[in-house]
Design a protein around this nucleic acid. Structure first.
Length: 256
DNA sequence: ATGGCTTAGTTCCTAAGA
């Protein structure tokens, strides 16, 4: 089965691209981020017409996450993370799909840094770690898929120098991500491509796509039982080059 | 160089993204 993480950067603007992707790749489960859509304006009929059940956690204007499953309705387990009652951002949605727990994650960007947005990012990673620890304790097969807004290693970016001051690769951001992995999660794409050099995002600006100036920030983290089922991981890069593309490419794992 | 694009909402500008 193929499980995908795809930051669509606006589901309304990206709907033709998304439906095309579902039709061409027929992924079994898709975690979407950056819907930029309220719950009421989520294109439910179009997604269902493509053969997918969906649960979504929208927000007007920005953020927003969803879980899609081919031929079945995901069952919601949780929306939002505990630990900060005043946090109303729609960034976490956890579902059960046929006995597999799948979470769609949109971790805060954290720029500019230093500042409150960066502090919020670091707190959010901690809150995610607490939830991830509970999921491992449950010993239910789990995939944490999303836009983590963390460049884990120096070889996960086209230029360390260009990104040096960015929130995406600060030691604190990386430390939070590594502490998450250290709980026992497997970064699927890193496992399959340990030398790095694989990008999931290319900026719209400054000809980043044409120069292949990208970096890797979309990750699928697998619990131990799921990691044992990993067949392959990759990026459907060609979709980044299409008309009206998102700045992220679909990133995926294939499981036995 | 706090720019360069793109999306969405409060639209013919501003905020946010990464």
């Amino acid at each position: 089965m193929k499980i995908v993480s795809y930051n669509v950067n606006g589901i309304k603007a990206r709907l033709p691209r998304l439906l095309e992707y579902l039709d061409e790749q027929k992924p079994d489960i898709v975690c979407l981020q950056e819907l930029k859509s309220s719950d009421e304006t989520f294109p439910e009929a179009d997604v269902r017409g493509a053969g997918y059940g969906a649960v979504w956690h929208g927000q007007k204007g920005f953020n927003g996450v969803a879980v899609l499953a081919r031929g079945v309705d995901p069952v919601e387990r949780r929306r939002g993370l505990a630990g900060e009652d005043e946090d109303l951002h729609s960034r976490y949605l956890e579902c059960d799909v046929g006995g597999l727990v799948v979470a769609s994650i949109y971790l805060p960007n954290g720029n500019p840094r230093p500042g409150p947005k960066f502090d919020y990012k670091l707190r959010w990673i901690e809150r995610l770690r607490e939830r991830a620890r509970d999921l491992l304790a449950e010993e239910v097969p789990t995939v944490l898929a999303g836009d983590y807004n963390v460049i884990p290693n120096d070889d996960d970016t086209f230029s360390v120098r260009a990104m040096a001051d960015d929130a995406l690769m600060q030691p604190e951001s990386r430390g939070g991500y590594r502490a998450l992995l250290a709980q026992g999660w497997t970064d699927a794409l890193r496992t399959r491509r340990p030398k790095g050099g694989v990008w999931t995002f290319w900026d719209y600006q400054a000809g980043a796509w044409q120069r292949d100036a990208g970096f890797r920030i979309d990750h699928l983290l697998l619990s131990p039982a799921v990691a044992d089922r990993l067949v392959e991981a990759g990026v459907d890069k060609e979709y980044r080059g299409r008309e009206k593309a998102s700045d992220h490419a679909p990133t995926w794992v294939r499981l036995r």
